[in-house]
Design a protein around this nucleic acid. Structure first.
Lengths: 379, 379
DNA sequence: GCGCCTCGTCGAAACGTTTCGACGACGTTA
DNA sequence: TAACGTCGTCGAAACGTTTCGACGAGGCGC
């Protein structure tokens, strides 16, 4: 192994001078600098990360905790991960990957032995067991997702609650009175995973406010489960005219499920998904969606962490605003109770149609919001 | 920060003694050991990884290079990754995640600055640009997948060639004469990704040998592409009675594609998938499959790497044998040219039916094997 | 009872960095 | 021209480990 001393000798300077050339922490004359750089090049010197860490107590590594739990949709999670890794690279940071098996203890170990300068934590539950540990850690951390309370933490999250509400608003404005919600798999809600819980709560609350009758149905991502869930939804409320889908794995099967009931998207049923743009586009017909900015979440989390590492203070909660992208799945005429026709962009009747008070005052919810239960469909 | 010296002082011993208690590299009396351990517990001491690395030139970190390239099916890759991380943990190793953006340079950097003791390399292409670098690195490495030549390397791979062949054998034995191959997305073949290339070659060669007429069709994973690909397959050879699917993302749409042609699985078309067991099971009907042991690949790779780190010599190529799991998708009566009936387990006619020589001597292949091209389907 | 070997422990020197105080040389200001 | 900064560089002391040689205390055989 070739060390900084070798370089210094080769260039005829002190080792500290080489160090200053490398770190730029003191001025070095152009002549000396170029001589040193040349020696580095010739000898093929690479600073030894461990030794540097020993001297500075900085590892230039951030740990990324990704508990791949049951029911999470891996590709979306991976978008965040790769975005985070890429962003970290730009700041000269490497990423240590920690998965399910190394839970709280794993975090404690990595933190204690100073293997990472900071922590990025994904898939956060409302009462995440990692949160108390993070609070007392020497190293800063950023959560992607929100636990029940964000005091003393730094969280970045997509505003799933607003997203759930926005779906209802959009559909209600278009005149829909019966809306179904196709959610994440049951275990996800049982764990009270932040994103799933919040989207559902936002959806339910907005439905209440708007006097919409809503039905909530969790579902696994496979063909059969989705079919059953969709059928169950329509059995409960045959007059349902719109669906909100918050389950990426299920997206592809929703169309088939509706078709099996003789209903078409968008003519008979409008669909809005909460998912990354790409997934909504490749459905057929393409789905109107509230775009889930997975990459930006990863990127922002890294930026916040870097800021904290530099001693800056950052907001304890950063919420990304939902944005709706209108596509084919809500372009139909939802039928029955709608005055509205075609051209959804400019729609003078929208307020009238959408905001009319509900008959019953408050909406009825078929299932209690927490934890939702799949009513056993007939087999 | 609390150091090994603090512990030594607290326990009334020399720092080296504490070190020996921790590493076990010299005998320590039970009395002293327990006193030291107690002090460690009381003070909450954690050895500083960087300092240790500086002293030993061992980081207890392995780097995992996962270039998430276009067209790879993320969930399967992630199974390998999590299996690898879990296995690494068992050996006291942490995992540094490197993604697409940090290609060869990233590897070189991590290796040069000694941030990892070894390398795990995924998604290997036949002429992978990382291979020459790996050969000259100071640190050992293990590839999951095979480049064109494995000399001087350590590779673990599933025997995709045998898997491709096994599909043909099984189907040919059951009497099928026209078999379609639904492959990975085109870019994957264009890159000459090892696993895709090999499976296809194995399939083609076996089809040749058995006098089977085969059609190869790459396809993207979305609904539309799969439908088009399936339709194209049957337009080329309407008499096709079996399909081999080597594309996890497409699995879910194959049934729909066939249905759109008025063909049913398994009555009209037999299907064999090359994919992890779980995916084959949740198709409907469930797919007979050659099980892709994603987890075991990850685990084995780590074990080989650990062996290399310990100075052991390991084989340059470890190939996992394909295993066929029979399920519903090949339980049908393939019709037309089959003597065979029901009960596929005990089948006296199998040899007769399967091994009968093909009419044309050698099989005809509709498309050249490398690189395959999708014949533009009518839109 | 003396020498010898083993066992357990110690002190000091590494490991490859960074960082701090110091110190010449030189240019500027009075 | 003397005093004073500033700039560039140096040497040495950290950082928190591991590791190596050495050394005292016992136990054993003779």
């Amino acid at each position: 192994m070739i060390t900084i001393c070798d370089v210094a000798r080769h260039a005829g300077v002190a080792t500290s001078t080489v160090s200053y050339v490398l770190t730029g922490k003191r001025p070095i004359s152009a002549a000396t600098r170029s001589r040193v750089l040349e020696s580095i090049r010739v000898l093929g010197y690479h600073p030894h990360a461990g030794a540097r860490g020993s001297a500075t107590s900085r590892t230039n590594v951030v740990a990324l905790a990704v508990p791949l739990r049951e029911g999470v949709y891996v590709p979306v999670l991976m978008r965040m991960v790769t975005a985070a890794v890429t962003a970290a690279r730009r700041h000269g940071l490497n990423v240590l990957l920690m998965t399910a098996d190394q839970g709280v203890d794993g975090l404690r170990g990595v933190a204690g032995s100073a293997q990472a300068d900071g922590f990025l934590v994904l898939d956060v539950e409302m009462n995440d067991e990692r949160v108390p540990l993070l609070r007392q850690l020497a190293q800063p951390s950023v959560l992607i997702g929100q636990p029940a309370t964000t005091a003393g933490l730094t969280c970045v999250d997509f505003d799933f609650e607003a997203a759930g509400a926005a779906c209802v608003e959009h559909l209600a404005d278009a005149g829909h009175r019966y809306i179904g919600f196709l959610g994440a798999p049951t275990p996800v809600y049982q764990r009270r995973t932040g994103f799933a819980h919040r989207a559902m709560v936002g959806f339910s609350a907005a439905a209440m406010r708007r006097g919409i009758t809503s039905t909530i149905m969790p579902t696994a991502g496979d063909h059969h489960s989705v079919l059953k869930a969709v059928q169950a939804l329509f059995r409960v409320h045959p007059s349902t005219t719109a669906l909100v889908v918050h389950n990426e794995a299920a997206l592809g099967w929703v169309g088939a499920g509706l078709r099996s009931l003789g209903r078409k998207v968008p003519e008979d049923v409008a669909v809005i998904a909460i998912c990354p743009d790409g997934l909504a586009e490749q459905a057929s017909p393409s789905f109107t969606s509230i775009r889930l900015p997975a990459e930006e979440l990863g990127r922002r989390a890294v930026e916040l962490l870097v800021a904290k590492l530099n001693g800056q203070t950052v907001p304890s909660l950063t919420l990304l605003e939902p944005e709706l992208a209108e596509r084919a799945s809500t372009a139909g005429v939802p039928g029955r109770m709608l005055a509205r026709r075609a051209n959804p962009a400019v729609n003078p009747e929208r307020v009238t149609a959408g905001r009319r008070p509900s008959r019953s005052g408050a909406g009825t919810r078929t299932l209690p919001p927490t934890p939702p239960v799949v009513p056993a469909p007939r087999t």
